[in-house]
């Protein structure tokens, strides 16, 4: 048996001895600033770091260049849904968006608040309308029993349960809401996230108010306004498919209108 040979580095492993960003490298970052409707752009020189996220950049600016910069985040790991901003024109969750993925060859980075929501200040958008529409879409769960009742037994293979599974992981980040043109055009449109939520509820055997939820999503500005162009699907960081859920709501509402379905 041979002894004394050092373990050979696995050639598929990235070489961690070399930085992926040259030392002393800076990036020019344009940040949209202002209160309410006002808007101006300010430029910052931010040092590049390895594995840097867009949220890291914003945090660096706030801590080192301008403490008055307003933005919102909490978990930093893609769970809370509070850090979404417009990055180089596209809505993204900034804590899970690597700078190297978005700056391109031009090495440009522009950060703005989410579209389709009023700005509070700088990069913090007012999410009230987004959450209010969640309620308008009948997105509140209503149980059939209280906490002392028996647990509902749901077959994991049932179509309803599978439909719920497909949409339930939404983190309420409003990226889809910001990506949707119909939201821009029609202020009453409930938007992809609220409708996706409603779709999980009408498929939830335990939800006691399916009829009310269906009624709410079928009103003007509801599911029938969706153009099915899938911008929400394209941008959802979790990879959810609100378009499919909305198509399900449309189908169900039409079947119920013409009494073609026994579903409640």
């Amino acid at each position: 048996m041979e002894t004394g040979t050092a373990p050979q580095p696995d050639s598929t492993e990235p070489d961690r001895t070399k930085p992926d960003v040259p030392l002393g490298d800076y990036l020019t970052v344009r940040v949209s600033r202002g209160k309410g409707p006002e808007n101006r752009y300010e430029e910052f020189q931010v040092p590049r770091r390895e594995n840097q996220t867009v949220l890291d950049i914003v945090t660096w600016i706030q801590r080192n260049a301008d403490p008055a910069l307003s933005y919102r985040f909490a978990c930093r790991v893609g769970v809370c849904g509070s850090c979404a901003m417009t990055v180089n024109g596209k809505p993204r969750w900034t804590c899970r968006t690597h700078v190297s993925k978005v700056i391109g060859k031009e090495r440009s980075l522009t950060i703005e608040p989410l579209r389709n929501l009023p700005r509070i200040k700088d990069l913090a958008a007012d999410m009230s309308a987004f959450f209010e529409k969640w309620q308008q879409a009948g997105g509140r769960f209503a149980g059939k029993t209280d906490r002392t009742g028996p647990l509902a037994r749901i077959d994991p293979e049932s179509p309803g349960r599978k439909a719920v599974d497909a949409g339930i992981e939404c983190i309420n980040c409003a990226v889809c809401y910001s990506a949707c043109d119909v939201v821009t055009w029609d202020e009453d449109y409930l938007g992809p996230a609220a409708l996706n939520r409603a779709w999980t509820l009408v498929n939830d055997e335990r939800h006691a108010e399916k009829r009310e939820t269906m009624k709410k999503v079928s009103a003007a500005g509801g599911c029938h306004s969706c153009h099915s162009h899938g911008s929400c699907v394209e941008h959802c960081p979790i990879g959810l498919n609100p378009t499919a859920g909305i198509a399900g709501l449309k189908r169900r509402s039409v079947l119920q209108t013409f009494r073609l379905s026994g579903e409640k």
């Binding site: 079928s218 009103a219 003007a220 509801g222 029938h224 449309k250 509402s253 039409v254 119920q256 209108t257 013409f258």
Partner: peptide, 9 residues
């Protein structure tokens, strides 16, 4: 007519 009926039409 409901939105659903108009949509279906």
């Amino acid at each position: 007519m409901t939105e659903a009926a108009l949509y279906a039409a």
